[in-house]
Design a protein around this nucleic acid. Structure first.
Length: 287
DNA sequence: CATCAACCCTGAGAGC
DNA sequence: TGCTCTCAGGGTTGAT
């Protein structure tokens, strides 16, 4: 059975990293908020989406990190003059570490390190990304990057009625639509499969055939799996995000051929929208 | 507007 | 053992 070695950060993983990095918890011993950038190092130029390397290095210098938040799967660092955004994509990860070891000699970069912000305080934030899919932006307005994103699923002002309306005004297959970041922000392959299983909906259902009750159930399921992901990460970021036994908690994702925890029927794998998809054929019948 | 395939990459695992 | 081949993943882009 295929199990991800990589992080595959979705909304809960990004939320966990943002909270830990902002509050100086878990492996991040201090907060990044309050640190001042003294310089930047670009180890893989394509990781930097915008601006170009030289402008980035010049512009980011002397800026103070005043805040850190999340929008969809993007980390959004507020700086004195700009916003610095990071998308971890498949394999991205962030380290906050001292630039020197115990002996006072410069700490070398690790394999797959792509980008680093050095701080006046002596530490650095390193973006490590094995598969090079991750990206970073330095922009005046975060909307330049996140402007097209759909609503935040955990936003309390986002209602089932709105969700139902959105589903019904599009004629799309349910799973690809949920993974479309301009439709709703933050869901990836894992949490989409989990939410559909919990809501007892088939991924190939037409979005405009979803009833108000099903929309309500689906939104509740999305919130439940995201909340569970956040809660578990919050309880134990290291083993969750670093790939411990977190997959044991999934009901459908990655469990091809294993019994559905609800009814015992064997989980099946299909491909929907070019993505590996896991369903219980009994709990999630095609309508 | 919706769908689909190619692309960006690496490393794990299979087959030989 | 070591080689080659296939495949997984999120999101962007361009064709239909």
């Amino acid at each position: 059975m295929f199990l991800p070695i990589n992080n595959m950060p979705e909304l809960p993983e990004v939320e966990t990293i943002v909270n830990a990095l902002r509050d100086g918890r878990s492996e991040y011993r201090t907060s990044v908020v309050g640190l001042t950038v003294s310089g930047a190092e670009v180890l893989w130029v394509k990781t930097l989406a915008t601006p170009g390397e030289e402008e980035f290095k010049a512009r980011v210098r002397e800026q103070l990190i005043t805040g850190l938040s999340r929008r969809g799967k993007f980390l959004v660092f507020s700086l004195t003059q700009d916003f610095f955004l990071i998308h971890l994509r498949m394999s991205g990860d962030l380290r906050l570490e001292d630039r020197e070891d115990e002996c006072g000699s410069p700490k070398p970069f690790e394999k797959h390190d792509r980008l680093a912000l050095n701080f006046k305080e002596g530490s650095r934030l390193v973006f490590n990304d094995t598969r090079k899919f991750g990206r970073a932006w330095l922009v005046k307005d975060p909307a330049e990057v996140t402007g097209e994103l759909g609503p935040e699923p955990m936003d309390a002002s986002f209602t089932a009625q709105q969700f139902h309306q959105m589903l019904n005004t599009r004629g799309r297959l349910l799973k690809p639509l949920l993974m479309d970041q301009t439709f709703i922000a933050g869901l990836g392959n894992i949490y989409t499969d989990e939410a559909l299983h919990l809501a007892k909906l088939h991924p190939l259902t037409q979005s405009n055939e979803i009833s108000l009750n099903q929309s309500r159930r689906l939104l509740e399921a999305i919130r439940a799996v995201l909340t569970e992901g956040i809660r578990r990460n919050g309880a134990s970021i290291d083993w969750v995000y670093r790939g411990g036994d977190f997959q044991n908690h999934f009901q459908a994702y990655g469990r091809t051929g294993e019994p559905c925890p609800v009814c015992g029927t064997l989980i099946e794998r299909l491909v929907v929208g070019q993505r590996g998809t896991h369903i219980c054929p009994n709990c999630q019948p095609i309508h």
